[in-house]
Design a protein around this nucleic acid. Structure first.
Lengths: 242, 242
DNA sequence: CCGTATTTGTCCGTATGTATG
DNA sequence: ACATACATACGGACAAATACG
């Protein structure tokens, strides 16, 4: 059951310019977020059909908001809408995931260049702190602690680019990748290697070496792609071996 | 007046797998394409408010399809939707355009790497032919002939990457850039320099030098960004000079 | 090949939220 | 601060398209 969140009323503001205040969430946007969570968590599996009537009943709203939410999810690339057939949770195969990795790597490379060219001392301190924290989790081999720190580190790297379009684009790619593998993109044994790469990135960023930071961040993502490839080859081998 | 195109009826096909047949366009998708054209051509100006009721009357459909079309346009980044206020044609300032150029450059860099690593002789021939054709238009200083060839060349470069996500993403960025400047991104005097860059790209691609092709394609786009920057500085100077 | 069931697509009336006088 | 006007958001019913028997 979705309830409309009545947000704290903001002072009336004249409406010109680059206004970004969200006064009241629409039901459609709430449903969209809800569905997004259900898809990424796997509660709704890949290939599943999103029945408008069923969702309408489940969330106790009419089909209008459901439809709009689906259009939004299509935008995020989480579902695929076929005319007169409805919405289906997107099935991502390995090829697609690898394609996305390449794009993600290119975008992170750009983020690295931009970040290094305009990084502030505060940002460097925050990034350093995260690397230090991760180092601790590496020592205790605590992947559950490592994972969120890793995510935050990457998020900060991208945000530091101060390129709004890039900052919006990267999470879109990430969500689609989560569709392929919800499990962490980092494997237990690779935590140390991963954080060593973080250290190198941090060093390049601190030195304001844009080219180096870009290259290292790109490689960092491509290393993840390489690990995925290795795992796929492994599965392939295991499957054909039986 | 929009009419529903009743397409040739296809044989009934069972619906599993990666089906991509579009049986009948929905009214919403027709409206979306129509509006997209009107926005890019400038018929609907930047910042304009898209009134649902007015559009509904203009296209002689109800407001439902209009709403869906707007959601789709928001996805393309051509309009901005504010809850309870409606859809506004996005106003793109110089900063945003420059941000998009950086992303475009990174994506073209990726396209270059991928293309060079898997280019076919046929593709090389087609690209060569285009460069030759453009050379002719450069000699006669015919920008109207140069422009579409240039677009086709760039399109082929991206398609050659064979990365579907990339192939979908680049036009999205391009459309948004058109929002900023509908006029060509190539200036008359720069056609020769631009085509020299094309030749260098073609050489690197032909040599299957992925790193070089990627770098050159990235630089090619960044050169365009540089020209935009120069023009902006020029306008700025002229404006403050009066 | 045709009739039926199901699902999406469309329409319009009403409620809610926002800006303005 | 309040009332009014206007646009969007939502709900529910009908029409069209598709899949299945």
């Amino acid at each position: 059951m979705i309830e409309r969140k009545q947000e704290v009323r903001l002072r009336p503001v004249s409406f010109g310019g680059a206004m970004r205040i969200r006064r009241s969430e629409t039901i459609a946007s709430l449903i969209q977020r809800e569905l997004e969570g259900m898809i990424i968590s796997g509660e709704i599996g890949a290939g599943d059909h999103l029945n408008e009537a069923a969702l309408s009943e489940r969330f106790e709203v009419s089909r209008g908001p459901i439809r709009e939410a689906c259009r939004g999810l299509e935008r995020s690339g989480l579902i695929r809408i076929v005319a007169n057939h409805g919405a289906f949770v997107r099935e991502m195969n390995a090829e697609e995931a690898l394609e996305l990795y390449d794009i993600r790597a290119a975008l992170f490379g750009l983020a690295g260049k931009l970040l290094a060219s305009r990084v502030s001392p505060l940002e460097i301190r925050r990034l350093s702190a995260l690397v230090e924290e991760m180092e601790g989790t590496v020592d205790t081999d605590d992947i559950n602690a490592f994972y969120p720190l890793n995510v935050e580190f990457h998020t900060l790297l991208v945000k530091g680019s101060e390129n709004e379009h890039l900052i919006n684009l990267v999470p879109t790619i990430d969500k689609q990748l989560h569709l392929f593998r919800r499990r962490g993109l980092v494997q237990p044994g690779k935590m140390r290697a991963s954080n060593e790469e973080h250290k190198a990135i941090l060093a390049a960023v601190s030195a304001r070496d844009a080219a180096q930071a870009g290259a290292l961040m790109e490689q960092h993502i491509l290393a993840g792609k390489g690990r995925l490839l290795a795992r796929l080859a492994e599965q392939q081998g295991a499957a054909s071996g039986t």
